[in-house]
């Protein structure tokens, strides 16, 4: 088949296509880091056998060393163990919030795209109202009503990202509905439901996969921000945002308390973005 491919594309095009398909070093690094985080999330005990909640006042504020990779906090708890054990919470919030946002956004977007003029009008006005409020403010508002906690954080972040996804789904749906290949299906006598199932929905939702990867990193940052403000995960539980906040007081004496959780938040978000972008580029170059 390869001889055929070469013939099809102009020489410059062929070179470009191949370049797009190859994963760069950045993407491999991002993948490796995320693999570590996922492993930490599902089998924290394997990576860090120490108990993240075990207090050891004698060894409080130990700087990073071979024994304590990331140092210890004010109660002598291992930062490394806490970061590793916190991965589960952060990742869960990130994935669940994104799934919620995507799910809700998709439902609203599909409703607007297929529901006819009046439904479309209604959904659009609703989205505009939601857009008028900054996402984080919306999340804060929700937490004020329901009270802090991991579940609330997930709900808050998920709900506040939904309008953005809804807009994208609606626009994509309208494009796909009017696409020549959808029209070609009509000409072939394909029924409405089958057209929707076979062509319209898959082509509308495929680009969302890449968007979702981008969204997980963003959601983790948001959730951490809420925890940092004391509105997310409640203190003793090892959550990155909460750890960042706890270390804030000792920043001048024990920098490692804030830096390592912070580093994990940033690296997770960056890795998600790098992979998401690569994903997007690949689906588009197809």
């Amino acid at each position: 088949m390869s001889a055929l491919d070469v013939r099809a594309a102009a020489p410059t095009g062929a070179v470009r296509v191949r370049r797009a398909a190859r994963a760069g070093a950045g993407e491999w690094l991002a993948l490796a880091f995320l693999a570590f985080v996922v492993l930490a999330a599902v089998a924290a005990g394997l990576l860090a056998p120490a108990d993240p909640l075990a207090i050891d006042p004698a060894n409080a504020f130990d700087p990073p060393s071979l024994a304590q990779l990331f140092g210890t906090d004010e109660s002598g708890r291992s930062i490394f163990a806490r970061v590793v054990h916190g991965a589960g919470t952060s990742l869960l919030i990130g994935v669940a919030a994104t799934a919620l946002g995507l799910g809700l956004g998709t439902a609203l977007g599909v409703l607007a795209g297929l529901g006819g003029r009046f439904v479309d009008f209604g959904v659009n006005r609703l989205l505009e109202v939601l857009f008028a409020l900054p996402g984080l403010l919306l999340a804060l508002f929700l937490i004020v009503i329901v009270g802090p906690g991991t579940l609330t954080t997930t709900l808050a972040v998920g709900l506040s990202t939904a309008p953005g996804y809804a807009r994208i789904v609606r626009a994509q749906l309208l494009t796909v509905r009017a696409a020549p290949y959808t029209e070609a299906a009509t000409v072939l006598g394909v029924g409405w439901w089958r057209k929707l199932r076979r062509h319209i929905l898959p082509n509308t939702l495929a680009p969302l996969l890449a968007l979702g990867t981008l969204g997980v990193g963003q959601a983790i940052v948001w959730a951490s921000a809420l925890s940092y403000l004391g509105l997310g995960a409640v203190p003793p539980s090892p959550e990155w945002g909460a750890m960042l906040a706890a270390g804030r007081t000792y920043l001048s004496t024990a920098w490692w308390m804030s830096v390592f959780p912070g580093l994990f938040i940033v690296l997770t978000a960056v890795s998600g973005t790098v992979l998401g972008r690569g994903f997007q580029r690949r689906t588009r170059s197809r």
Binding site: P180, A184, V187, G189, R198, H199, R286
Partner: peptide
């Protein structure tokens, strides 16, 4: 729809008339 099969269509831009997936 039952009589759609009597008519076929060929377009200028064949590529865009195929579902990209």
């Amino acid at each position: 729809r039952p009589n759609r099969s009597l008519l076929g269509a060929v377009y200028q831009d064949a590529l865009s008339s195929f579902d990209p997936r």
